[in-house]
């Protein structure tokens, strides 16, 4: 029961934060609220037993993303959204409502939240849970899958991050024409 209460409360907080982000015009406030959003989602992940994901989301999602966004506002020196109304709000609203309705229609077939007999629980997951300890000797199943069974996946991830880091450096790393700050941000982005 307590699980459900935490779940509902945190989801409510998440929704309030997201609505506030959509409606606000002060960019600094928007970025800070996004940090809060990220931390709340980390709480949500802990509630759903995904401790590793919560850890990463709190460190990388809430930490580094927020810092990068703050750096961008500092560099661009824009503090406010100039046209808060957006351009014609009706078309985007219609698109969003249609997409949302389609997705909700799609969820009607999904097994209920927490269902042990859902197809996603029956495929390779039982193998990982039963065998990962004797196969790899790592008690944390997520680590075992990430670094051992799906090691090449993680290698691919490193390639993606490396490419993004190089692209960021190419975009803003070498330029010190306007100010020295731009070059420093390029080094920060390289993580």
């Amino acid at each position: 029961m307590i699980d459900v209460i935490i779940d509902v409360t945190v989801l409510a907080f998440l929704t309030i934060t997201a609505v506030a982000i959509v409606r606000m015009t002060n960019l600094f406030a928007i970025v800070m609220l996004f940090g809060i959003f990220s931390f709340l989602s980390a709480v949500m992940f802990i509630g759903m037993d995904a401790v590793d994901v919560a850890f990463t989301e709190a460190a990388v999602g809430a930490g580094i993303s927020t810092v990068l966004m703050l750096g961008t506002i500092a560099l661009t020196k824009d503090r406010k959204e100039k046209y808060p109304g957006g351009h014609r709000p009706w078309l985007p609203l219609a698109v969003v409502i249609v997409t949302g309705a389609t997705l909700v229609y799609g969820t009607l077939d999904i097994p209920a939240f927490g269902d042990l007999n859902a197809p996603s629980q029956k495929h390779v997951a039982p193998y990982y849970i039963e065998k990962s300890m004797e196969d790899t000797g790592v008690p944390n199943i997520v680590t075992a899958v990430l670094a051992s069974y799906r090691g090449f996946d993680t290698l691919g991830e490193v390639v993606v991050i490396f490419t993004a880091g190089i692209a960021v450096l190419l975009l803003i790393g070498g330029r010190r024409r306007k100010s020295d700050v731009a070059g420093q941000a390029g080094e920060d982005d390289d993580e």
Binding site: M44, M48, D49, A50, G114, A118, S120, A125
Partner: peptide, 8 residues
């Protein structure tokens, strides 16, 4: 993560 959750 919701899809991967198991009650209990």
């Amino acid at each position: 993560i919701s899809i991967g959750t198991v009650t209990g």
